[in-house]
């Protein structure tokens, strides 16, 4: 009985985590978009986009590791934007 309850609890935990991840997947995608835009706006100097005065960029650049990694990931996926969107909506 104890083993059954333990097994049920574990199953519910996994199920709960999967549902939470699923329910937040769109929000996480939105978050990545917002962070990507933030990275592009602040670091546009490297790609010719109008960007904030250099002083602001220099101040926040040491803390932008996550934003830089998102920007690099998004740039790498740019040749298959369609595939990425389909992936977001779980279309195989």
């Amino acid at each position: 009985m104890k083993r059954l309850l333990y097994f049920l609890k574990k199953s519910f935990d996994v199920f709960d985590k999967a549902m939470k991840e699923d329910s937040t997947s769109f929000i996480r995608k939105q978050l990545e978009e917002e962070e990507n835009i933030f990275a592009l706006i602040t670091m546009g100097i490297f790609s010719g986009i109008p960007s904030p005065p250099t002083g602001i960029v220099l101040r926040i650049l040491p803390h932008m590791s996550r934003e830089i990694s998102i920007m690099i990931k998004r740039s790498a996926n740019l040749d298959d934007v369609f595939g990425e969107i389909m992936g977001t909506f779980n279309v195989d």
């Binding site: 329910s23 937040t24 929000i27 996480r28 939105q30 978050l31 917002e34 962070e35 933030f38």
Partner: peptide, 13 residues
Amino acid sequence: RILSTRGMVERVQ
């Protein structure tokens, strides 16, 4: 806005 969106994810998971 970014921090608020993170907050939404945090509140769920």
